[in-house]
Computed example of a mutant assay.
Amino acid sequence: MSEVKLATSVRTEFGKGAARRVRRENKVPGVLYGHGTDPVHLTLPGHELLLALRTPNVLLSLDIDGKSELAIPKAVQRDPLKGFLEHVDLLLVKRGEKVNVEVPVNAEGDLAPGNYLLEHVLNALPVEAEATHIPEAVTVSVAGLEAGASILAKDITLPSGVTLAVDEDAVVLQVLAAQAEEPAAETEGEGETAEA
């Protein structure tokens, strides 16, 4: 897992007006919390943070007034229309510490020939991993699967040091038979009403 370094500064102004001023400077207001410490309100560089958040569960190395801290994103708020970052909550982590995160599930391979659909029951798999070794994603082969087949959490091969944080019998992916819609047939009663 890659570590992204971000230069941050501590915020002393709070409220909507202060947050708007921060965003006008192409920066993002955020808060860092965890390990029983008091929350630290930060200003983060907008573009660099946006690029970093493209990687799921990215590990951020924050330079806060000359002190380096490690954090992972916990909650990200975006503008619903324009998509820009409005606020980010960061969780303080230490090297070697285990954290619970959700890892995206990627399916590879072709289903058996036929009219089948692959349903992602879980788009992300809850796992426990060391904060500095969180996998970016897990890949599952669905090659040759037919309707009725399902892949459970325990069937997914995880990297070493990563364990499931969900019931091992939880369904992650399942194959369904696609159903074609039948054209609506006009009944006799409807036809008579239309003529009248």
Results as ranks from 00 to 15, higher is better:
P29R: 00
A19K: 00
K5E: 03
G17F: 03
G17C: 03
G191V: 12
L32K: 12
L164C: 09
T187Y: 04
P126C: 07
R78F: 05
E86S: 01
D169L: 09
L152K: 15
L117I: 10
L90G: 05
S9L: 12
L145Q: 08
G144K: 06
A153Y: 10
K67E: 06
H133P: 00
L50C: 06
V121K: 04
S141E: 06
L70N: 06
T163P: 04
Q77A: 13
H41F: 07
L173I: 11
R20I: 09
V103A: 04
V127H: 10
A143Q: 14
P113N: 07
P183F: 09
R78L: 05
T12M: 04
D167W: 11
E136F: 10
L51F: 13
A147F: 01
L152C: 03
V162E: 03
L164F: 13
V162R: 13
D89V: 06
K16Y: 01
T157D: 04
P126L: 03
V162T: 11
L59T: 02
S160F: 12
E146I: 07
V172K: 08
E181M: 14
R20P: 02
Q77N: 05
V99E: 01
T157Q: 12
P135S: 06
R21T: 09
E69T: 15
L6E: 05
G66A: 11
A178C: 08
V93F: 13
I72Y: 12
L90N: 02
A177Y: 00
